[in-house]
């Protein structure tokens, strides 16, 4: 029987070297709330586990001139405890605080949530709507990509062997911007999104929406950017007509499957319902930001 190795590097270089050595069957471990569950269920059998929690770059939350940067292995609870971050990014926190229970969030990271590449990952739609990018290092060096380019399908990412997400960057948003995320689950918590909607919208001084981004979770193989849905808001005061158009466009953008978690029709319908509800929260936050 082969044995599984467990390594705890303290620098990025070491981590990248270990992963490059480990070839295909090495696994990055952050909070482990996906990895350990998958191992327990015999879905994965890694030969090498590289725990990245002791690498300082992955654990910091820093306010930079152009925005906020937070380490990929920062836990949900660490973000929830960071007052300024929470105030600045309520939409992101809507998503983060929905992940599992308090115990789960004590371990779970946004990096893990993004890299696990579940279409239903709760932090992802709001991150996409906020225009977040990821800083990645690997054997070939460093690169920055938008968050939506990480997941390529359920459980699949664009990361190459040996690559690690180091941090996420959230660019400062324009004044009058509000973001929100909501999901629908049959249970009130400890459940997986049947549909998730993240919206970020910016209002001009006249109260007219000048830009918007809508991202939908759990309705396709990866989180979707619903451009037509965003367009339905731009140039409006986010009134009833705009919301109706948003809902219709969000529903139209869905490419869901039928599965044990919901039927196609149900997901399509609820995507529109949620889009409307989320837009109203984002609107309230955008207005709040101005007052």
């Amino acid at each position: 029987m082969t044995e599984m190795k467990y390594e705890v590097p303290t620098s990025l270089d070491d981590a990248v070297a270990l992963l490059a050595d480990g070839k295909g069957n090495a696994k990055v471990l952050a909070g482990g709330t996906d990895v350990l569950v998958q191992m327990h269920m015999d879905l994965i059998e890694p030969d090498l586990i590289v725990d990245i929690k002791n690498i300082s770059e992955l654990r910091q939350i820093t306010k930079e001139k152009d925005g906020y940067r937070f380490g990929a292995a920062v836990s949900g609870v660490e973000l929830m405890d960071h007052e300024d971050f929470c105030q600045t990014w309520p939409g992101i926190m809507d998503g983060v605080s929905l992940i599992g229970s308090l115990q789960v969030k004590g371990r779970a990271s946004v990096g893990g949530n993004v890299c696990n590449a579940s279409p239903a990952a709760d932090s992802v739609p709001a991150m996409i709507a906020a225009g977040a990018t990821a800083t990645i290092v690997g054997p070939k060096g460093k690169r920055d990509i938008p968050v939506e380019e990480i997941a390529t399908g359920p459980g699949q990412t664009s990361l190459e062997d040996g690559e690690i997400v180091v941090s996420f960057f959230l660019p400062n948003s324009a004044p009058g911007t509000g973001g929100a995320y909501q999901r629908f689950t049959p249970r009130t918590e400890m459940d997986i999104a049947v549909v998730g909607v993240g919206i970020s919208l910016t209002l001009g001084d006249d109260g007219v929406c000048s830009s918007a981004k809508v991202a939908l979770g759990a309705v396709a193989a990866t989180a979707l950017i619903a451009e037509a849905a965003a367009a339905a808001l731009v140039g409006t005061k986010v009134d009833k007509a705009a919301l109706d158009n948003l809902a219709a466009a969000a529903s139209a953008a869905c490419k869901p499957i039928d599965d044990k978690r919901g039927t196609k029709e149900y997901r399509i319908k609820v995507a529109g319902v949620l889009a409307r509800r989320v837009a109203l929260i984002a609107l309230e936050r955008a207005l709040g930001g101005k007052e």
């Binding site: 049959p186 249970r187 009130t188 918590e189 400890m190 459940d191 997986i192 599965d259 044990k260 978690r261």
Partner: peptide, 26 residues
């Protein structure tokens, strides 16, 4: 919410508490 769900091959599709939805406290 609780129900056994089988796929077309007669294989149980939700053999875990994530998808076999017992109520939680809330």
């Amino acid at each position: 919410n609780e129900e056994y769900i089988y796929d077309e091959n007669g294989v149980m599709a939700n053999p875990g508490f994530l998808d076999y939805r017992m109520p939680v406290a809330s």
